[in-house]
Design a protein around this nucleic acid. Structure first.
Length: 276
DNA sequence: GCCCAGGTATAAA
DNA sequence: TTTATACATGGG
């Protein structure tokens, strides 16, 4: 990974297997917004503007230290995705097509609580409205010390009532958000320790939270706890499995099932005709 | 107006 | 154990 440091930022020179568009628009995160061709977002209480410049990617107005300590990790830039892609594309022709189409997806290392809360909100919902609700949650309840609209902590949400949450228009999910926040805040659910458990045990723990079923639990494992074998199955993935992997289960993708799932999901959403 | 959305809780079979 | 229905809200 070649890096150039400017007076006002860090530039990644022609990075391999890293596309902002594919990474942000593949349905794994909901808080990054495109403005004037640049992506603006917040993670771990830091604001970032990041954008393409030719084949390079510019991280605006940050130090090398911040890049190394926060963003290289967040974007999973120290993982060799070319190896994962090579492995996956040998498994099945549709996976090869998917990786050829969107080889720049990175599985972000999101904050575990943010991922949990976000995917509770995602249930029976569409992506534009998921984004809207999460944005309202941050606008209304962010507890950042720096006056930025970061994702509110579980402790902050745990102090709220279902009625307090009414401005975010989450509907029936509000009670689930509160329950998750209370369990995390009280330590009944410890996301750090869940990260070290075998995946089935981890999912069973997460499913103690109201509104968390197998799909949301897999999303938390994959996007929040970076367990790359977690395989969230939604309506699209169900169709894909039925058509291309009939009778098989996600274990055929080995330890990278979750990455496979992300390539397939992104690919099939832009080519739904493949399923016909 | 109508159908549906990166599902889950609950009740009924 | 499997299958059916309600759920809040608003995008398309």
């Amino acid at each position: 990974m070649k890096i150039q440091v400017f007076e006002n930022g860090v530039k990644l020179l022609n990075p391999e297997n890293f596309s902002l568009e594919q990474t942000f628009e593949c349905g794994q995160c909901f808080k990054w917004q495109k403005q004037d061709g640049k992506y603006k977002g917040i993670a771990f209480n830091k604001e970032l503007v990041v954008y393409n410049s030719g084949n390079d990617i510019i991280f605006e107005n940050i130090s090398l230290n911040e890049f190394d300590s926060i963003w290289a990790d967040y974007f999973d830039l120290n993982t060799d995705y070319s190896r994962i892609i090579k492995h996956l594309s040998n498994i099945n022709p549709i996976l090869k097509q998917a990786t050829d189409e969107c080889p720049g997806i990175r599985i972000l290392r999101q904050d575990p609580w943010e991922a949990l809360c976000s995917f509770i909100i995602s249930q029976n919902n569409n992506i534009p409205r998921i984004k809207k609700i999460i944005n309202l949650l941050c606008q209304n309840f962010s507890d950042s010390p720096n006056n930025i609209k970061s994702f509110p902590s579980a402790d902050t949400i745990a102090k709220l009532s279902e009625q307090d949450l009414s401005p975010i228009r989450a509907g029936f999910r509000a009670k689930y958000i509160i329950d998750a926040a209370e369990k995390v805040s009280k330590g009944i659910i410890n996301l750090e320790s869940i990260a070290t458990m075998p995946i089935e045990e981890a999912k069973n723990n997460l499913m103690q939270i109201k509104g968390v079923g197998p799909k949301v639990a897999d999303c938390v494992m994959l996007y929040g706890l970076h367990n790359l074998s977690a395989f969230p199955i939604d309506v699209w993935m169900k169709k894909i499995m039925d058509k291309f992997f009939k009778g098989q289960n996600p274990s055929i993708f080995g330890p990278y099932a979750g990455v496979a799932q992300q390539y397939l999901y992104h690919y099939i959403r832009s080519h739904p005709e493949v399923l016909i």
